[in-house]
Computed example of a mutant assay.
Amino acid sequence: MTRSTMFTLFYLASFLQAGAYGLTFMLPRLFEGFGGNEKVVGVMLFITAIATLLTVYFSGHLSDRFGRVPTLGGACLSIAAALASYGLATDVGVSLVFASVALGVGWGLTYALSPIVLTGLVNVEERVRYFAILSVAVMAGFGLSPVMTSLMEKSGMTVNDAFFVTAVLCALAGTIFFAITGSVRNQASARGPEVRSSLSFASVVVIMKSKARLPVIMVCMGASVFAGMNNFQTVFADERGLNYADYFLAYTITVVLFRLVLARFKGGRNPYLTIAILQYVMFGSIALFLGIGGHVSLYLLVAFLFGIGYGVSYPILAAMAANDAEPEILPQTLQFFALSYFIGIFGFPLVAGWMMVEMGSSALLMLVVAMAGIEATMALMRSISVRAALASVASDTR
Rank of each mutant, 00 (worst) to 15 (best):
A223W: 01
F236A: 07
I217M: 13
M208T: 05
V216D: 00
N243P: 07
A250W: 03
L199I: 07
L199T: 12
G222H: 00
V206D: 05
P193E: 13
D246R: 14
R213L: 13
G241V: 06
Q233C: 12
A190T: 08
N231V: 15
M229N: 06
R240V: 01
L249Q: 08
N243R: 13
R196T: 11
A250H: 04
A227E: 11
R213S: 10
S210C: 08
M221W: 02
Y247Q: 03
L214R: 15
V219E: 08
A227M: 11
V204C: 02
V204T: 11
S224H: 00
A245V: 09
R213P: 04
R191K: 13
M208L: 15
R196L: 13
A202V: 10
F226Q: 14
A237D: 10
S210Y: 04
A190K: 14
D246A: 13
I207L: 09
V225I: 15
E239G: 11
V204R: 03
M229Y: 04
V205G: 06
M208Q: 02
G241P: 01
L214A: 10
K211Q: 10
F201V: 12
A245G: 12
S200F: 01
R240L: 13
P193L: 05
F201W: 12
V195N: 08
S224P: 05
N231M: 14
N230R: 10
T234N: 02
F236L: 05
M208G: 06
P193K: 09
V235F: 07
N230W: 06
S197W: 01
E239L: 14
D246T: 14
Q233Y: 08
S198C: 02
V235A: 04
G222P: 00
N231R: 01
L249A: 13
K209P: 03
A202P: 01
E194P: 04
Y244P: 02
R196E: 12
R196A: 14
A202I: 05
R191T: 12
D238T: 11
G241F: 02
